[in-house]
Amino acid sequence: MPLLEVEEVSKAFRGLRAVAGASFSVEGQSITALIGPNGAGKTTLFNLVAGVYRPDRGDIRLRGRSIAGLPAHRVCAAGVGRTFQLVKPFAGLSVLDNAIVGALNGERTVSGARARAVAVLERLGLSGKAEVAASHLTLADRRRLEVARALATRPSLLLLDEMMAGLRPTEIDELVGVLRNVQREEGVTILLTEHVMRAVMALADQIVVLHHGEVIARGEPAAIVRNPAVLDCYLGEDATAGEPGA
């Protein structure tokens, strides 16, 4: 059974169809990238999985159990951790305390959560900054903190929202390395939306292409970049697509 199943999911806003009957699944222990041109419905689909919106139709299942329409905190409890493209660190708290808040999701005691948080920060390369206030971090480090906090909740599925947006090429390469490492060492499954194709190609085992709210292609990266429909709708535009998508 796949870890995540998205089945015929639709969502409209005031009559405007953002996602229309999208279906795909994510196998455990893999990295799946959700891509598509601006306005393709990536963010909406992402937020449907994360519990921000309730789908109009269709179902979303994690390990066979429906999580569609659950409030965000229960989606997290079910085993989904997420990051935000517009990072939302707890600015006044230290990096360590940020991670502890996440770790408390799966730990009964604060000392247990602290141990988990320390380990996660180590994994993300933030150990040296544990006592720094989150508001003092660079954007690249804030992105890492987002991952650390989400990972600390012990998710089976980690949702990463446009992690690379606004980062410098060297920062992107570093973060790609860190994420690969995280996936392998923590045994977590990752679903990400991403504009930076270099990162997608380096990370993804599977790519799902959205266009006008519909899944038009899915498969291995090598196959996707040869897919004429994808080339037609997406990669042709990608040369100009640098800004965050809808």
Partner: peptide
């Protein structure tokens, strides 16, 4: 303190 700093992020970390 998590809720004070950012309620949406707090919810995403499993906090009711």
């Amino acid at each position: 303190r998590a809720i004070r700093e950012d309620e949406v992020a707090a919810q995403a970390l499993g906090i009711d």
